[in-house]
Design a protein around this nucleic acid. Structure first.
Lengths: 97, 97
DNA sequence: TTGATAGGTAAGTCGCGACTTGCCTATGGT
DNA sequence: ACCATAGGCAAGTCGCGACTTACCTATCAA
Protein backbone atom coordinates (compact mmCIF):
# COMPACT_ATOMS: atom_id res chain seq x y z
CA UNK A 1 0.00 0.00 0.00
CA UNK A 2 1.10 3.57 -0.56
CA UNK A 3 0.67 4.27 3.13
CA UNK A 4 3.43 1.82 3.97
CA UNK A 5 5.77 3.29 1.39
CA UNK A 6 5.46 6.78 2.82
CA UNK A 7 5.95 5.56 6.36
CA UNK A 8 8.94 3.51 5.31
CA UNK A 9 10.56 6.54 3.70
CA UNK A 10 9.88 8.75 6.70
CA UNK A 11 12.86 7.44 8.68
CA UNK A 12 16.38 8.68 7.87
CA UNK A 13 17.97 5.35 8.74
CA UNK A 14 15.73 3.52 6.31
CA UNK A 15 16.61 6.00 3.59
CA UNK A 16 20.28 5.34 4.29
CA UNK A 17 19.63 1.63 3.93
CA UNK A 18 18.08 2.29 0.55
CA UNK A 19 21.11 4.40 -0.31
CA UNK A 20 23.32 1.42 0.45
CA UNK A 21 21.21 -1.04 -1.49
CA UNK A 22 21.09 1.16 -4.56
CA UNK A 23 24.88 1.08 -4.58
CA UNK A 24 25.17 -2.66 -4.12
CA UNK A 25 22.29 -5.08 -4.24
CA UNK A 26 22.12 -8.36 -2.34
CA UNK A 27 23.66 -7.29 0.96
CA UNK A 28 23.15 -9.20 4.17
CA UNK A 29 21.99 -7.74 7.46
CA UNK A 30 25.51 -7.61 8.88
CA UNK A 31 26.89 -5.98 5.77
CA UNK A 32 24.31 -3.24 5.97
CA UNK A 33 25.04 -2.76 9.65
CA UNK A 34 28.75 -2.39 8.97
CA UNK A 35 28.29 0.03 6.10
CA UNK A 36 25.88 2.22 8.03
CA UNK A 37 28.45 2.33 10.82
CA UNK A 38 31.41 3.20 8.62
CA UNK A 39 29.91 5.44 5.96
CA UNK A 40 27.19 7.23 7.86
CA UNK A 41 28.45 7.01 11.43
CA UNK A 42 25.25 5.38 12.62
CA UNK A 43 25.82 3.30 15.74
CA UNK A 44 22.68 1.22 15.70
CA UNK A 45 22.12 -2.28 16.99
CA UNK A 46 21.65 -5.22 14.65
CA UNK A 47 18.03 -5.59 15.74
CA UNK A 48 17.28 -2.00 14.90
CA UNK A 49 18.48 -2.52 11.34
CA UNK A 50 16.55 -5.77 11.16
CA UNK A 51 13.36 -4.01 12.12
CA UNK A 52 14.02 -1.30 9.56
CA UNK A 53 14.52 -3.93 6.89
CA UNK A 54 11.23 -5.53 7.88
CA UNK A 55 9.48 -2.20 7.42
CA UNK A 56 11.10 -1.68 4.04
CA UNK A 57 10.18 -5.18 3.00
CA UNK A 58 6.54 -4.87 4.01
CA UNK A 59 6.43 -1.66 2.01
CA UNK A 60 7.67 -3.54 -1.05
CA UNK A 61 10.83 -1.47 -1.31
CA UNK A 62 13.10 -4.38 -0.43
CA UNK A 63 12.87 -8.06 -1.29
CA UNK A 64 14.87 -10.71 0.54
CA UNK A 65 16.07 -14.16 -0.46
CA UNK A 66 17.44 -16.73 1.91
CA UNK A 67 20.40 -18.96 1.08
CA UNK A 68 21.60 -21.16 3.89
CA UNK A 69 22.13 -19.04 6.94
CA UNK A 70 22.47 -15.84 4.95
CA UNK A 71 19.66 -13.53 3.88
CA UNK A 72 20.30 -11.19 0.99
CA UNK A 73 18.35 -8.01 0.43
CA UNK A 74 17.52 -6.47 -2.92
CA UNK A 75 16.14 -3.05 -3.66
CA UNK A 76 12.88 -2.53 -5.51
CA UNK A 77 12.20 1.01 -6.64
CA UNK A 78 8.86 0.28 -8.23
CA UNK A 79 6.72 1.49 -5.29
CA UNK A 80 8.48 4.84 -5.55
CA UNK A 81 6.84 5.61 -8.86
CA UNK A 82 3.42 5.61 -7.24
CA UNK A 83 4.36 8.37 -4.87
CA UNK A 84 6.26 10.33 -7.46
CA UNK A 85 3.32 10.59 -9.81
CA UNK A 86 0.59 11.06 -7.23
CA UNK A 87 0.61 14.85 -7.24
CA UNK A 88 1.61 15.48 -10.81
CA UNK A 89 -0.71 17.93 -12.45
CA UNK A 90 -2.05 17.03 -15.89
CA UNK A 91 -0.98 20.43 -17.25
CA UNK A 92 2.51 20.14 -15.77
CA UNK A 93 5.25 20.57 -18.40
CA UNK A 94 8.48 18.60 -18.44
CA UNK A 95 10.76 18.85 -15.45
CA UNK A 96 13.39 20.98 -17.23
CA UNK A 97 11.77 24.31 -18.05
CA UNK B 1 15.72 20.02 2.87
CA UNK B 2 14.85 16.52 1.75
CA UNK B 3 14.40 15.45 5.33
CA UNK B 4 11.49 17.85 5.75
CA UNK B 5 9.85 16.65 2.56
CA UNK B 6 9.85 13.01 3.66
CA UNK B 7 8.54 13.89 7.09
CA UNK B 8 5.84 16.06 5.58
CA UNK B 9 4.69 13.23 3.34
CA UNK B 10 4.66 10.72 6.18
CA UNK B 11 1.30 11.84 7.53
CA UNK B 12 -1.92 10.72 5.80
CA UNK B 13 -3.72 13.97 6.60
CA UNK B 14 -1.00 16.02 4.96
CA UNK B 15 -1.17 13.82 1.87
CA UNK B 16 -4.92 14.43 1.74
CA UNK B 17 -4.26 18.15 1.91
CA UNK B 18 -1.94 17.82 -1.06
CA UNK B 19 -4.65 15.84 -2.82
CA UNK B 20 -7.03 18.73 -2.29
CA UNK B 21 -4.58 21.36 -3.43
CA UNK B 22 -3.69 19.48 -6.59
CA UNK B 23 -7.36 19.58 -7.50
CA UNK B 24 -7.82 23.25 -6.77
CA UNK B 25 -5.03 25.66 -5.96
CA UNK B 26 -5.40 28.72 -3.75
CA UNK B 27 -7.66 27.34 -1.05
CA UNK B 28 -7.96 28.89 2.36
CA UNK B 29 -7.60 27.11 5.67
CA UNK B 30 -11.35 26.87 6.21
CA UNK B 31 -11.91 25.58 2.71
CA UNK B 32 -9.39 22.83 3.26
CA UNK B 33 -10.98 21.98 6.59
CA UNK B 34 -14.40 21.71 5.03
CA UNK B 35 -13.25 19.57 2.11
CA UNK B 36 -11.32 17.20 4.36
CA UNK B 37 -14.46 16.81 6.42
CA UNK B 38 -16.80 16.18 3.52
CA UNK B 39 -14.70 14.21 1.08
CA UNK B 40 -12.46 12.23 3.41
CA UNK B 41 -14.52 12.13 6.58
CA UNK B 42 -11.74 13.60 8.64
CA UNK B 43 -13.06 15.35 11.74
CA UNK B 44 -10.03 17.41 12.65
CA UNK B 45 -9.87 20.75 14.35
CA UNK B 46 -8.89 23.88 12.49
CA UNK B 47 -5.63 24.13 14.41
CA UNK B 48 -4.64 20.64 13.42
CA UNK B 49 -4.99 21.53 9.75
CA UNK B 50 -3.15 24.77 10.36
CA UNK B 51 -0.21 22.90 11.85
CA UNK B 52 -0.20 20.47 8.97
CA UNK B 53 -0.11 23.36 6.53
CA UNK B 54 2.83 24.81 8.42
CA UNK B 55 4.72 21.54 8.07
CA UNK B 56 3.93 21.37 4.37
CA UNK B 57 5.01 24.97 3.91
CA UNK B 58 8.32 24.52 5.73
CA UNK B 59 8.96 21.53 3.51
CA UNK B 60 8.45 23.71 0.45
CA UNK B 61 5.48 21.71 -0.77
CA UNK B 62 3.01 24.52 -0.18
CA UNK B 63 3.35 28.27 -0.58
CA UNK B 64 0.93 30.74 0.96
CA UNK B 65 -0.07 34.27 0.06
CA UNK B 66 -2.01 36.60 2.26
CA UNK B 67 -4.74 38.90 0.99
CA UNK B 68 -6.63 40.81 3.61
CA UNK B 69 -7.82 38.41 6.24
CA UNK B 70 -7.60 35.42 3.94
CA UNK B 71 -4.58 33.24 3.33
CA UNK B 72 -4.47 31.19 0.16
CA UNK B 73 -2.38 28.08 -0.23
CA UNK B 74 -0.73 26.88 -3.42
CA UNK B 75 0.84 23.54 -4.15
CA UNK B 76 4.47 23.21 -5.21
CA UNK B 77 5.45 19.80 -6.49
CA UNK B 78 9.07 20.64 -7.16
CA UNK B 79 10.47 19.12 -3.94
CA UNK B 80 8.88 15.83 -4.95
CA UNK B 81 11.28 15.40 -7.83
CA UNK B 82 14.21 15.17 -5.45
CA UNK B 83 12.76 12.19 -3.65
CA UNK B 84 11.57 10.54 -6.84
CA UNK B 85 15.00 10.47 -8.43
CA UNK B 86 17.05 9.68 -5.33
CA UNK B 87 17.07 5.91 -5.73
CA UNK B 88 16.93 5.66 -9.49
CA UNK B 89 19.58 3.31 -10.78
CA UNK B 90 21.61 4.47 -13.76
CA UNK B 91 20.86 1.22 -15.58
CA UNK B 92 17.14 1.39 -14.86
CA UNK B 93 15.01 1.11 -18.00
CA UNK B 94 11.85 3.11 -18.62
CA UNK B 95 8.96 2.76 -16.20
CA UNK B 96 6.74 0.78 -18.59
CA UNK B 97 8.37 -2.62 -19.16
C1' DT C 1 -17.55 50.73 17.61
C1' DT C 2 -19.40 46.40 17.84
C1' DG C 3 -19.60 41.90 16.11
C1' DA C 4 -18.39 38.32 12.98
C1' DT C 5 -14.99 36.12 10.13
C1' DA C 6 -10.18 34.24 9.20
C1' DG C 7 -6.28 32.99 11.28
C1' DG C 8 -2.24 32.69 14.89
C1' DT C 9 -0.01 31.24 19.48
C1' DA C 10 0.87 28.42 23.32
C1' DA C 11 0.62 24.79 26.61
C1' DG C 12 -0.71 20.25 27.48
C1' DT C 13 -2.18 15.22 26.57
C1' DC C 14 -1.33 10.91 24.47
C1' DG C 15 -0.19 7.16 21.39
C1' DC C 16 3.01 5.30 18.18
C1' DG C 17 7.39 4.37 16.42
C1' DA C 18 12.51 3.82 17.08
C1' DC C 19 15.70 1.56 19.75
C1' DT C 20 17.47 -1.53 23.25
C1' DT C 21 18.18 -5.78 26.03
C1' DG C 22 17.87 -10.56 26.51
C1' DC C 23 17.17 -14.91 24.84
C1' DC C 24 16.18 -18.37 21.19
C1' DT C 25 16.74 -20.91 16.40
C1' DA C 26 19.30 -22.57 12.53
C1' DT C 27 23.07 -23.32 9.43
C1' DG C 28 28.08 -24.22 8.55
C1' DG C 29 32.71 -25.52 9.81
C1' DT C 30 36.18 -28.38 12.50
C1' DA D 1 29.52 -33.34 19.08
C1' DC D 2 30.89 -28.56 19.65
C1' DC D 3 31.21 -23.70 18.73
C1' DA D 4 30.81 -19.69 15.88
C1' DT D 5 28.13 -17.25 12.61
C1' DA D 6 23.68 -15.19 10.75
C1' DG D 7 19.43 -14.05 12.06
C1' DG D 8 14.62 -14.08 14.63
C1' DC D 9 11.39 -13.10 18.61
C1' DA D 10 9.54 -10.60 22.51
C1' DA D 11 9.04 -7.31 26.01
C1' DG D 12 10.22 -2.89 27.64
C1' DT D 13 11.83 2.17 27.57
C1' DC D 14 11.45 6.68 25.75
C1' DG D 15 11.00 10.68 22.87
C1' DC D 16 8.60 12.88 19.20
C1' DG D 17 4.73 14.06 16.60
C1' DA D 18 -0.41 14.59 16.09
C1' DC D 19 -4.16 16.60 18.18
C1' DT D 20 -6.79 19.33 21.46
C1' DT D 21 -8.18 23.27 24.40
C1' DA D 22 -8.06 27.96 25.36
C1' DC D 23 -7.00 32.47 24.37
C1' DC D 24 -5.30 36.24 21.35
C1' DT D 25 -4.81 39.25 16.83
C1' DA D 26 -6.40 41.24 12.56
C1' DT D 27 -9.55 42.43 8.89
C1' DC D 28 -14.19 43.57 7.03
C1' DA D 29 -19.20 44.93 7.45
C1' DA D 30 -23.12 47.04 9.84
Amino acid sequence: MAEDVFKALADPTRRHILDELVERDGQTLFEICARLMNKHGLGLSRQAISQHLAVLESAGLVHSRREGRCKFHDLDTEPLELIATRWLRPDAPESTP
